[in-house]
Design a protein around this nucleic acid. Structure first.
Lengths: 249, 249
DNA sequence: GCAAAAGTGTTCTTGGTACACCCATGA
DNA sequence: TCATGGGTGTACCAAGAACACTTTTGC
């Protein structure tokens, strides 16, 4: 079955199952090699990259819909998810399926609800669903070079801005870092999200004064240099600290 | 024509004109008598208060839809508007029209997009449309006493939280205060939004150091006390200051 | 020992907080 | 002249920025 037939078949199913005109688009962030990355899919049908979005079942809460979509389209579970914006321009989505006629479910006007998601299991590789030929992590650094469909570049940019705003009130560090990590690694995450470099000494003191980390009795071997200490989050203090907001970065 | 017939008639029109399953709910804030108030309507049909929400025309951008809805339902124009959240629980709206059958447009499931709006013309009174018996400002203080339909209390609460978060990055002062105002009045606005009292001396110095106000050569007569100076916003500096965020309150 | 990265300490400055004092006004 | 609220000054303290110094590691 070619991608065209596949799309027509999905359309028929979708009309029964999903609410019209509403979609969800999760922007899944990961942190790897000291860089931020996002999860994208490339459809069989067109060679553009897209967010792994989907539709809302008639009997789904909106928040449940995103969870289901992420699982079905990318095999991703256990993520922190939060709504960050709505994308409702009237011609934002219809053009993508321009070669089909207007009865196609996927071709109608969609108002899309953006969710950002944080995913900390760098080892697990996402799996593409049957309408996608690829489902891959793309580093933010690489985004300018690739072709993104619809308004998904704009959605990703707003998601990143939201991360930046929420860095002091949401468990972003906890959800993007692995179980154990070093302070220089955590600092790189903050720098990646904030888009600026931070002073090491000040970062250390600030993060330590917050009392949200537990120092472990281990170091990470990093080759020809001093081995940095490993830390993990002290969840109790971490959540308490987030309630009041951490500090200003 | 009674309210029942009216609703049935609207339903027929709506099916042509509007996207199904999507609504917008503006939370219009005003500041008056040193207190925050919100704009609510009471429908002819049920005696509950609701936000002056509405639907999205098939040829409207989402952002245009809210503007139109506010104009049609409350006669309100010239407001600052910004999306702040989506309300998508599956049974949030259907119950309101429970006595009608399921073909009624208004009774379907709606995912609603919340917008907060800032309105600074305290003299102009809102006008109700033909499906509402009232369109009134309600002080936040009075909200606990009144009956709000659907999940609109929750929507208002989230709007208020959003105001609080954005107080340093959005022109909230400018859009809620009249052209000319005194520093004590501005302080009351900040206190109302933040839900806590601020030290007068510190507030004065802080706001003045921001250089966003122009001191006018006038005072306001306030009776038996010293006449406070009048100020207005210096738009150029104000917008510049908002880009970096004002300060932390 | 040297280079490079991790970790710690010190100093300066800024900005917030608390509070005191003076000013203006009408009763 | 007193009470009340507006306007300003000051002193203290905490937190941030900049930068220097020490420690650890492999070569």
């Amino acid at each position: 079955m070619d991608s065209r037939e596949q799309i027509l078949q999905k359309s028929a199913e979708a009309k029964e199952l999903y609410l019209p005109h509403i979609s969800v688009d999760p922007v899944v962030f990961g942190f790897d090699q000291n860089e931020l990355k996002v999860l994208l899919v490339r459809m069989n049908y067109k060679k553009q990259w897209l967010l792994p979005g989907g539709y809302v079942r008639r009997d789904d809460d909106l928040d449940e819909a995103v969870v289901r979509v992420l699982k079905d389209r990318a095999g991703v579970t256990e993520v922190f998810l939060e709504e960050f914006g709505v994308f409702g321009r009237k011609n934002r989505s219809q053009l993508y399926f321009d070669e089909f006629d207007d009865t196609l479910f996927q071709k109608q006007r969609f108002i899309s609800v953006g969710y950002y998601a944080l995913y900390n299991s760098s080892e697990i590789y996402p799996v593409a669903d049957d309408v996608s030929e690829a489902c891959e992590w793309v580093y933010l650094r690489q985004l300018p070079e690739i072709v993104l469909g619809m308004d998904h570049r704009e959605i990703i940019e707003k998601a990143l801005l939201t991360l930046r705003e929420k860095i002091s009130t949401k468990p972003i560090g906890y959800n993007l870092m692995p179980e154990k990590f070093t302070l220089p690694e955590l600092q790189k995450l903050y720098e990646a999200i904030l888009g600026k470099s931070l002073n090491r000494g000040n970062f250390y003191r600030k993060i330590k004064n917050l009392n949200v980390l537990k120092k472990l009795n281990e170091q990470r071997y990093v080759g020809a240099h001093r081995s940095p200490d490993l830390y993990s989050f002290d969840m109790e203090n971490y959540e308490k600290a987030l309630e009041n907001g951490l500090n200003n970065w």
